[in-house]
Simulated scan of single mutants.
Amino acid sequence: MARYRGPRLRVVRRLGELPGLTRKSPRKAYPPGQHGQARKKKSEYAIRLEEKQKLRFNYGLTEKQLLRYVKKARRAGGSTGQVLLQLLEMRLDNTIFRLGMAPTIPSARQLVNHGHVTINGRVLSIPSYQCRPGDVISVRDKDNSRKLVEANLEFPGLANLPSHLEFDKGKLTGKVNGVIEREWIALNINELLVVEYYSRQA
């Protein structure tokens, strides 16, 4: 299944607030579709599926990518759900979004793909790159790159900078100081249900 490129507000109406996907808020409070207003009792499977979809759409992953992250989190030891969230949060596209250099994760992915960002002084165009403590993320020293990021910084996606990151607005440089802690994750999600969803699949 390919990455979702359809209307984002439709997804937000169905799954609730997804800070990484869009900053807009829907005008209608009920899910889309003909039966959106008819509230049905959700099965346990539907609840787990919904939590999994929240993760997928918020971080802009394909089903295959998310499954790969779940397997990696299982191998890492510790709380699988927490490790999974940390792996997703430490992706380069998400880190750029959290630094305020892009208003959403899809626009952060575009910044990386178009070569506007450097990691430790080298241009990197891989949005899924896992940021590690000590990594320095900068804007490429080109006029159009700087203008793009400066415009984005006026209206950042999320107001608060997580404790594991620091950012110098003057130099347009961010630094990763550690791994994100659970309370700083902006997405409202029950990661245990996602792990349970995949344990039934495997």
Rank of each mutant, 00 (worst) to 15 (best):
D168S: 14
I126R: 01
L111C: 08
K142W: 04
P156A: 13
G178C: 10
L88C: 14
D93K: 10
G121W: 05
T173A: 11
S138D: 11
S125K: 15
Y129N: 13
D141L: 11
G121P: 08
F97V: 08
R182P: 00
R109C: 15
R140F: 09
V176N: 06
H116F: 10
S138M: 09
P106H: 04
G134P: 15
E181W: 01
C131K: 02
E154R: 15
P162R: 01
N160M: 09
H116M: 10
P103V: 05
E166S: 14
F97I: 01
L158G: 00
K169W: 00
V136H: 01
N177D: 12
A159C: 00
N113A: 09
P156K: 01
I96C: 10
N177M: 14
K171Q: 07
L111V: 05
V112I: 15
P127K: 03
Q110A: 15
I119R: 07
R182G: 00
H114T: 06
T95A: 14
E181Q: 11
E154S: 08
N94G: 06
P162D: 13
R132Y: 03
A151V: 06
L172D: 09
F155G: 02
G100N: 04
F167I: 00
D168M: 01
G174T: 10
C131G: 04
G170Q: 08
N113R: 02
V139T: 07
A102Q: 03
E183D: 13
M90A: 14
V176Q: 03
N120K: 14
E183L: 03
S128H: 01
V136D: 02
S128W: 06
P133F: 03
A151P: 00
K169S: 05
T104M: 08
H116K: 15
L124W: 01
R109V: 13
Q130G: 09
C131V: 13
R146I: 15
K169D: 01
T118I: 11
R140N: 06
K169Y: 01
E89T: 06
L153F: 03
S125N: 15
N160C: 03
N177K: 15
T95M: 14
L153M: 13
T173R: 13
I96D: 08
G170A: 05
G134E: 11
G157M: 10
P103K: 06
A159Y: 00
R91C: 05
A151N: 13
L99V: 05
G134Q: 12
R91D: 08
G170M: 01
P106W: 02
S107Q: 12
F167S: 00
L99K: 04
N160H: 05
N113H: 02
P156F: 04
S128I: 02
M101R: 04
N144T: 11
G121M: 10
D141K: 14
L99A: 06
E181L: 14
F167L: 08
F97W: 08
L148N: 02
